[in-house]
Design a protein around this nucleic acid. Structure first.
Lengths: 251, 251
DNA sequence: CCGACTTTGTGCATGCGTTCACAAGCGGTA
DNA sequence: TACCGCTTGTGAACGCATGCACAAAGTCGG
């Protein structure tokens, strides 16, 4: 039973419960933007800004003002008409919706170039994500501290992750190892995975995977380079003042 | 068969021109998936697979079979009904659409932990993206080769990028430097930027920016952790066989 | 205390992307 | 050659996300 959502009766938990109900209805795309708003707002708060309008905030976040308001409406109505939003209030509400009121322990697997970089971030930008475990297959790395945390052997993933209650696993291994590492993380109860390996991971339904694929990003950009080159070539001779390189496409 | 559709007359350039016209119509989301298909197909080709059905390919790429066929239809009809797709043929067509027949020179700005990792990739996975220039503000780094390429000072961005015809700029600097670096890249004629800095970049319309934001990715995962925790708490006591950890949410 | 101005919150229309379902087309087989 | 089964390619329906435009709601000045 989904607790009791009888439209009325918020007698149980005055505020939290309402948020949690709403969380399910927030579009995925909006969640990503909320994280961006949060960062912008945090920056504003640091500079002593206490209030902001949807117009200002939307420009700083690089989105449409109406979209921003709609996104904020998903988490509730915390603005004041005619005035705008209170920065502090908005920050705390977004943090709660995103689950940032709790710490999320992170494990990084694969301590190569990228793994090093990730480990050295040392609790990701905008705290709340302490890295509590590192893993690698290389015995020479095991025991050596990186970013203050000693590297464990990859065979220990299951036990260590369960012990330290890791909630997010980061895969920064070479492609062939990724699926196997993923399986181990899953069997350790990790339900959220951030995958840097250029591999399509197979996971059970209850596990959330997000991938960061540099090769794909580069190829998308490549596509746009090609498209621009074509447009420039077919419309007329390059119309950009800069001498990018007037490559001719047609044979 | 969409090859000559009424208005037809593909007399000008038999194949290339048709592709280029189509490129404009490909949805952004499909482009990202095409890059994934390409990788899967390349792997298959390496293993000696010569033909593949949409069903097989879609499973390997982790998408719906119908979606895959529609994505492929954007680039033309290169399958054989009753049989499937020729791997080699598909690879070469996707490569052409994504503009991978040409090399795209890459510049990395900000040689910190992440910049090092990127430079050491040395021509990104699935070649075609040679890193030809590195930049940093730190004078101690200037002149030192990283991944075989000497680091230049950040003030030289404009001249070096124009000289080496850089088409993709990668920003891996600390947040405060990102916008300034971006502006310099743009004034050097770079029209595609991959931004790792947690900053919303302001660029002219003719510049394409893609961002990779680790903090945002983590926070999206955090959101899902929270959502799952709530569901588990409100539905009943954890129903997953694994002993994740029976954390109680309600106070 | 009132009226005018400002900004939020949101119903609605529009467009894009995904999914379904099926006709068209091709190879294999008798 | 004619039929059969398989797989592609795509028209059409659906659903989600975006953007518009305006009423609701609040502040500020007189």
């Amino acid at each position: 039973m989904a607790s009791q959502r009888g439209e009325g009766e918020t007698t149980t938990t005055p505020l939290e419960a309402a948020d949690k109900e709403r969380a399910r209805a927030i579009p995925e795309a909006a969640v990503a933007r909320l994280a961006v708003y949060l960062r912008v707002l945090s920056g504003m708060a640091d500079q002593g800004v206490t209030a902001v309008s949807s117009e200002e905030l939307s420009q700083a976040a690089g989105v449409n003002a109406a979209k921003l308001r709609k996104d904020l409406s998903y988490i509730g109505s915390y603005g004041t008409r005619g005035v705008g939003y209170d920065v502090e209030v908005l920050v705390s509400h977004i943090e709660r919706i995103l689950g940032l009121t709790r710490n999320h322990s992170v494990a990084v697997v694969g301590i190569g170039n990228l793994g090093h970089a990730l480990a050295n971030y040392g609790g990701f930008p905008g705290r709340g994500f302490p890295v509590t475990a590192l893993f690698d297959v290389d015995d020479d790395l095991v025991g050596i501290p990186v970013g203050g945390i000693p590297v464990n052997h990859i065979d220990e993933i299951t036990s260590v992750c369960m012990e330290r209650e890791v909630s997010i696993g980061v895969i920064a291994t070479p492609p062939p190892a990724a699926q196997s590492v993923c399986d181990r993380l899953v069997s350790a109860g990790v339900q959220c995975i951030l995958n840097f390996a250029p591999v399509v991971l197979q996971v059970p339904d209850n596990v959330e995977v997000r991938k960061v694929d540099l090769a794909v990003e580069m190829q998308i950009l490549s596509f746009h380079v090609a498209r621009r080159a074509d447009e420039a070539a077919s419309v007329s001779v390059g119309n950009n003042g800069l001498g990018v390189d007037g490559m001719v496409i047609r044979p």
